[in-house]
């Protein structure tokens, strides 16, 4: 009797495993199929974006996190109407991007040999963005500590921070172990990207960036507005997940 029960269980488990494998295959979009007779459409086959969840750093160390938050607030300083890069989530945005496929250069051509090319030949580094941030932030803190009595970038006064960044930008403040100018250009690009990307990716919190400029978000239909010229569009922005007040449980 026990043996029968075992067999039955084993059978169930095998069935379950086969079922699971079938499900996985069925859901995977990346396998070859034949299309005959009708459009290949299955219900709920969409591929929505993965939301960046709040919480601790996924890529940065604590020290790196402090540096990137300080950088975010220099690049987008807070003002009475609009939060800065830190509070609007640009550092979280960059962290989640670096922890994901972007940080790993997933999908890019990374075969050797790696050679230095001309400017017009584009990015030729073996390092992905994750590695570039790791080394760039370490080099920034190292250089700041050497110049400012052992203080890391985040510990500097606002005016010293600005002086360091202006120096990086024009190439006068150089980093030991990283191209400071290129690194800062990348940080500027990414902090500002986080400020204007959909909030689902962790930046632009409460659509702060969109509200600031008057971008109404993913509204999809302006048929009633295309012919209303030189008239301010009156509605507040919406994101892919709607608006905060529509979903109070996430507040």
């Amino acid at each position: 009797m026990d043996k029968n029960r075992d067999d039955r269980l084993r059978f169930h488990r095998r069935e379950l495993l086969v079922g699971a494998a079938y499900l996985t295959l069925g859901m995977s979009k990346a396998h070859a199929t034949m299309i005959v007779g009708h459009l290949p459409w299955t219900p709920n086959a969409g591929n929505p974006p993965t939301a960046a969840l709040p919480g601790p750093w996924m890529f940065f160390t604590g020290e790196e996190g402090r540096a990137i938050e300080a950088l975010a607030d220099c690049i987008i300083p807070p003002d009475p109407q609009t939060p800065g890069g830190k509070d609007s989530g640009s550092a979280i945005f960059i962290d989640r991007q670096l922890a994901g496929p972007y940080g790993r250069q997933e999908g890019l051509y990374v075969r050797p040999p790696f050679m230095k090319g001309t400017r017009s030949q584009g990015h030729q580094s073996e390092q992905g963005p994750a590695q570039e941030y790791r080394e760039g932030l370490a080099a920034l803190d190292r250089s700041c500590k050497a110049r400012f009595e052992g203080k890391a970038f985040a510990m500097l006064s606002d005016s010293d921070k600005d002086a360091v960044l202006k120096g990086l930008e024009c190439g006068e403040f150089t980093l030991d172990g990283a191209d400071g100018k290129a690194f800062f250009a990348m940080v500027i690009r990414d902090v500002q990207m986080g400020f204007f990307a959909d909030p689902i990716y962790g930046g632009n919190r409460d659509m702060a960036g969109w509200k600031m400029i008057g971008y109404p978000g993913s509204r999809y239909n302006y048929l009633d507005w295309v012919n209303r010229h030189n008239e301010r569009f009156p509605l507040p922005p919406v994101s892919m997940t709607g608006r905060a007040e529509w979903t109070p449980q996430t507040r």
Partner: peptide, 18 residues
């Protein structure tokens, strides 16, 4: 892949610049 609006770029998440 085969691509179509309902599966690859439906209105609920197509407007994603990033």
């Amino acid at each position: 892949p085969w691509r179509d609006a309902p599966t690859d770029f439906p209105p609920d998440y197509m407007q994603d610049e990033l």
